[in-house]
Design a protein around this nucleic acid. Structure first.
Lengths: 342, 342
DNA sequence: GTGAAAGCGCTAACAT
DNA sequence: ATGTTAGCGCTTTCAC
């Protein structure tokens, strides 16, 4: 390629004219079909390269009825979990020659609907979507006839594969760990209980406490929006109590960030003054002084599972594949959790 | 929409048949053209909604010659800087009704080339790309006729807009800050000097030192690949010297992560034993005990600038727009840098 | 204000 | 092994 690269894009017909062939022959040669002489294939490939031919995916879509695009709908890219998911999906799709069309919903049902219709205009081969809990029914209706892997959020009224996480498992494992260390005054900061996630987490800690024969102390629980600001104020209020808790479980990534900020501002020593378990999988947890014990989602694994769900179905090879796949949180023990000193 | 939503996709002709019109009329009505009666427009919009019409972007592309897609090529999504960039671009594109087609190059020139051709198949309206320093000439040739905003890496042999960062400015500001605090034994861990970035950083610290009348101590410098592992071993070796440095500048995000890991493993107190400046914009820097002073790239600002470069050119409104836009690093002072105790 | 006709680039069915 | 033909769904030009 090079000199011949002109303003107007090169088409199959251009290559055909160059070689004295017809464009269907060129198409078949490039697609690697049977029944094309080795010589012709070689010449076509060379000419395509020389002329700088790049296929027109629009024309191909029009003919085939669907594109080689995978629509990806995620709530938030700045969340490192979703960033890891996107990375893994990009890798897996690239390996299969699929392209990722990226949409951010910001968990806003209106924007979500707009993005979903925009994704559908590309006639994607499939979709991987983390829908808002309060998605519009219209959004679900648009998605219904599509091959769509629901990610994290499994919408009951939308059929099809779901890759999700057992929401209570993280909370249960975290509480279990703190109880095993001997803690009894354990504070919990979590998302509002009126969300599916918040509800599950609260259930998880309840289960762990019950198994240890302990009761849940409502005074050590702070529920609110899953934001850093709420995490900061919640932990602030917990530290100002007469008797401070000996351990703390911060159950979402933003809450963890805010909570650690509060501890830092008040110069509370971790784990000297208080043991802490955070949520999320930031690599910084490992570089933290002493390290931060965390409950984390296996983002890349979840993404790989979602990709497999999609690809197997694209291949029509879903025989032994379960419709619903539920992974669980991992507890990674580092230095921020030790037995209580009081 | 709803009941009528069938397997086969609804086309303009279906809507036209439904209303006793022809499909060009329906097209014009939906596109909001002049010369369509208000009544027809209303009826068409209602029918489109009722039938669950979703435009076919392939057909539109074929007709128009280009899609409403913006190709985005980034080296790595797990890097929070690029995640922030993607988020901002997704926001800005959504606002203009553009879709983001995402590709990850992993800084591998071969993969980069494959991804670029894949992006071009979509006939994007434009591209925003962070190319590898050692990109294949072929990649640049493919990009040459396109509207492509080069991001971070400005390739000299590729014309067109560039949004980049003054690479030496971060290093200069960091050194300046440490020198101002009174440090003289300042260690520097940076990317290899044979990369454009590594070279610029080294120049930056040289400038700051020269301005303060100090010399560069080669024994306090560690250059290597920009990875966490190298950062960790580099800082390890610095701490094992006879006299440890009083301050440390870790000049990339992965190097910072590895470096902090080394300090944590050796229980080195920050800033008690050593003052540290890290690179990157992780929100965790603010939650760190005492806080981490950092040199950071304004990711969202850079992304917004790139988006503006692209959009203005799409609008043919580039009159007063400079070809090359260079932002600089910000130094954010937190608690990890104090005057030396020795 | 609306209809008729053409054509974008590709692939698949059929013909040779 | 290759050529011929048709048509995917859309927008645009021209005609009325």
């Amino acid at each position: 390629m090079g000199a011949e690269l002109t303003r107007k894009r090169v088409t199959l017909k251009d290559i055909a004219a160059e070689l004295g062939l017809t464009h269907p022959t060129v198409s078949r040669a490039l697609a690697g079909h049977e029944g094309i002489s080795e010589e012709t294939r070689k010449k076509v490939q060379q000419a395509a390269r020389r002329l700088g031919y790049v296929a027109n995916s629009g024309a191909r879509l029009l003919r085939r009825g669907h594109s080689n695009v995978v629509g990806l709908l995620l709530p938030d890219m700045t969340n490192e979990f979703y960033a890891a998911v996107a990375q893994r999906l990009a890798d897996d799709c690239a390996r299969r020659g699929l392209q990722l069309l990226l949409s951010i919903s910001a968990n806003d049902p209106d924007r979500e609907l707009a993005q979903v219709t925009a994704l559908l205009e590309a006639r994607p081969a499939g979709l991987i979507a983390t829908l808002a809990p309060d998605a519009h029914p219209e959004t679900l209706a648009y998605l219904a006839p599509m091959l769509c892997v629901q990610f994290m959020q499994g919408h009951p009224s939308l059929a099809g594969p779901v890759v999700t996480v057992e929401d209570s498992s993280g909370a249960r494992k975290a509480m279990q760990h703190l109880l095993d260390l001997g803690h009894r005054a354990i504070a919990f900061v979590g998302p509002n209980a009126d969300t599916p996630i918040g509800d599950a987490r609260l259930r998880g800690i309840g289960e762990a406490l019950a198994a240890a024969g302990c009761a849940l102390d409502p005074d050590l629980i702070r529920l609110g929006p899953s934001t850093a600001d709420f995490g900061e104020s919640a932990v602030g209020s917990l530290l100002e109590r007469g008797v401070a808790p000996t351990a703390l479980y911060l159950s979402s990534a933003p809450l963890s960030l805010g909570g650690m900020r509060a501890l830092s501002r008040r110069a509370a020593a971790v784990p000297g003054d208080i043991s802490v378990i955070v949520a999320g999988g930031s690599p910084w947890y490992d570089a933290w002084p002493n390290g931060l014990t965390s409950v984390t989602l296996p983002g890349a694994d979840l993404a790989a599972a979602a990709a497999e769900q999609l690809f197997r179905r694209l291949d029509g090879d879903e025989g032994d594949l379960p419709e619903r796949l539920t992974l669980s949180f991992d507890l990674i023990r580092r230095g921020s959790t030790i037995p209580p000193s009081r």
